[in-house]
Design a protein around this nucleic acid. Sequence first.
DNA 1: CCTATTATATACCGTTCGGTATATAGCGTC
DNA 2: GACGCTATATACCGAACGGTATATAATAGG
Lengths: 192, 192
Amino acid sequence: MEKREEILENALELFCDRGYDAVGVQEIAERAGVTKPTLYYYFKSKYGLLQELLERGCAPFLERLEQATAYEGDLRGTLCACARAFMDFAKRSPRFYDLLFSLFHYPRESEPYRCARPYVLRQQQLIRNIFEAAAAQLGNMRGRQRQFGLGFCGLVHYFIEMKFEEGREENLCVSDEEIYSLVHQFMHGIYS
Amino acid sequence: MEKREEILENALELFCDRGYDAVGVQEIAERAGVTKPTLYYYFKSKYGLLQELLERGCAPFLERLEQATAYEGDLRGTLCACARAFMDFAKRSPRFYDLLFSLFHYPRESEPYRCARPYVLRQQQLIRNIFEAAAAQLGNMRGRQRQFGLGFCGLVHYFIEMKFEEGREENLCVSDEEIYSLVHQFMHGIYS
DNA sequence: CCTATTATATACCGTTCGGTATATAGCGTC
DNA sequence: GACGCTATATACCGAACGGTATATAATAGG
């Protein structure tokens, strides 16, 4: 039962470092201290391994993000809560965060993309829902909910990547002021 | 001599559709109507093929971008010219544009990333140079030249991706007004 | 204690991978 | 017309790929 976790951990590391296609199941198994049939016993294929890896890593975050998107009239506050959810996610599992978005940038016809796509799309959908909900009160977005949703996701993702590059781990601590500033910048851009 | 071009074209299509690792040289050669040794005669390895593909696709764009980055006191105009260069690049070679940035999002230790990296970094460097040059006159950027450069590249790239998704080809025509608006939004964000 | 289930390994499958040794066809040039 | 160069194909290499048939330890339940 513990071998299972070890396989997942090593797969994450290797996929993250060198890419899904470039890593063989052999190497994953070896690094986890097991043999190939053990890996195929737990996950029925290489793709199944990737699926479970993503499901495990995304599920808790998506739950939290769903809570954060509850809109009750305070757009700024809602966006701040979501940005915070993203930052915490990236801080807790930086390797996984890297992997997820790396896979999402694979070609559209590739296995890794198809696997990561639903999770990233779900994130985008949740963020978009905020603007859908806010559209009732704010009359000035004229069907641009999708654009705003994608824009916000893009901005947050870009912010996190910048933080990743600057300092490897310590800088991932993002203050409430930074988040507030980021959201403010986004909204200011929208309304101007 | 014409086979050479055909190999490059088919490699672009396949790498773009399914990813560098997932495509074998066999398939590239077949689709180009040649056999493997012919491919290896022109490009000495699969990696060499990728290198030439990127060099061919990037060189003209980088030259044009370098001209566009010439800063002579008009930051807004310079940024507009650069944005225009990016848009034209993406419009002329949408598949190549896709491939280049797909490769750039591969894992840092992977061959495809190492191959695409210098070209994307060169773009970022050129854009950054604008802010370096402008820093002399504009006193308020306090070493944030790099951040601004990356931010501008990210914004333009994001804008292009959005256009790609909306309408596949027709919407790639970007008006001067749209570009001006994009740059204005960027600068406004900076100064506020 | 026997049995069924879970968890693991040995040894192997056919296929495809990137890459090459070698032969040869066309084709100007001396 | 022999020579040398460019461009192509046939046939092959060892290695690694994803995946599996089968045997066996360990363990829990009756």
